[in-house]
């Protein structure tokens, strides 16, 4: 299919202005098919054992350098959902870039964690895996019709440390329970996920970006206010527009003096976060965030930022 038939003028103009000479590469990569990745569920099976089993069944897998337990599927003999190991909950199908927020959050065992927008459960289940099923995760999902898939994935992966809630994420600032860790994987325009959904660039609009940016600012503020002192918040989206990412972090830093952006040490290719956009300068510490475009690691585009609540 021709690029012109998939990418709308608004999408093209926005990302040409943002990415300039790299825009063409971004469009090209956004239209390349995306392979599958899996995360081994070490709560149920040893990584080595599962990989050996799958390879004996003619799967070809390649370890993802930055994601413990993560593998790119090079070859599979049948659809993933029809494999016994999937039914048993021995692995989770998850895009490699989507594995990053939980890795960056890296909660300690026995922590109290909030996953503010949890469905379908890829990050909740990986957080539970990191915590070895200890502590508590409040897996929140405001939309009723997404609760079923969240619950089903949590069950299949053998997660027992979750409480599923259905609340507006903006209301967490009002609850008495405070959290050691908060993940705000915010609803977004998903401009980083074109490889998975070619309808996105057609439906994408600046108006939608602006609308979601307002919601994202409220969500990050609510998440930050529900953090304990010295707690850690990770903000992420699968969008690569500035208003949904750097602008949101900058908003929080302006509102909360006790918010500090922390450096993320992961071995992967990335782009520099945007510190100046539409005549506005952003806090320089935002340079510590991860801005990932599809061409960086042959993945989806993603934005991830780690923020500490200091005393």
């Amino acid at each position: 299919m021709k690029k012109e038939n998939i990418i709308s003028k608004q999408f093209k103009d926005y990302f040409e202005e943002l990415l300039q000479e790299e825009a063409e590469e971004f469009f090209e990569w956004s239209l390349k098919p995306l392979g599958s990745c899996i995360r081994v569920n070490t709560l149920k099976i040893k990584e080595k054992e599962l990989i050996q089993r799958l390879e004996e069944k003619n799967w070809k897998l390649k370890k993802i350098s930055f994601a413990p337990n993560g593998y790119k599927v090079i070859k599979k003999p049948m659809p993933i959902g029809k494999t016994i190991e999937h039914v048993l909950g021995y692995f989770y199908v998850q895009e490699s870039a989507s594995m990053i927020p939980s890795i960056v959050l890296n909660p300690k065992k026995h922590s109290i964690v909030l996953d503010m927008a949890a469905a379908p459960g890829s990050k909740t289940t990986s957080i539970a895996q990191i915590m070895m099923n200890t502590g508590i995760i409040i897996a929140n999902e405001p939309e009723m019709n997404r609760l079923r898939v969240l619950r089903s994935n949590i069950q299949r992966m053998g997660i027992i440390n979750t409480i599923i809630t259905r609340m507006d994420g903006r209301s967490f600032k009002k609850i008495p329970q405070k959290f050691n860790y908060v993940l705000v994987d915010a609803p977004c325009t998903a401009s980083g996920t074109v490889r998975r959904n070619l309808h996105i660039p057609k439906m994408w609009s600046v108006k939608a970006v602006e609308k979601l940016s307002k919601l994202q600012k409220q969500l990050i503020l609510s998440g930050f206010e529900s953090l304990e002192q010295n707690g850690t918040l990770v903000y992420s989206t699968c969008s690569v527009s500035v208003e949904e990412n750097e602008e949101v972090i900058n908003f929080l830093l302006e509102k909360k003096e006790c918010a500090r952006v922390e450096k993320i040490n992961l071995k992967l290719k990335k782009h520099e976060p945007v510190l100046e956009w539409k005549n506005k300068e952003y806090d320089k510490s935002i340079k510590n965030a991860l801005r990932i475009l599809p061409q960086d690691n042959d993945s989806e585009g993603f934005f991830v930022c780690k923020i500490k609540k200091v005393g």
């Binding site: 409040i138 069950q155 440390n161 979750t162 409480i163 599923i164 809630t165 259905r166 609340m167 329970q177």
Partner: peptide, 15 residues
């Protein structure tokens, strides 16, 4: 460990 006040709980734990 959790203060359940104001939490709108749908499910807890594993079936």
């Amino acid at each position: 460990k959790i203060n359940l006040e104001k939490l709108k709980i749908e499910f807890v734990g594993s079936y």
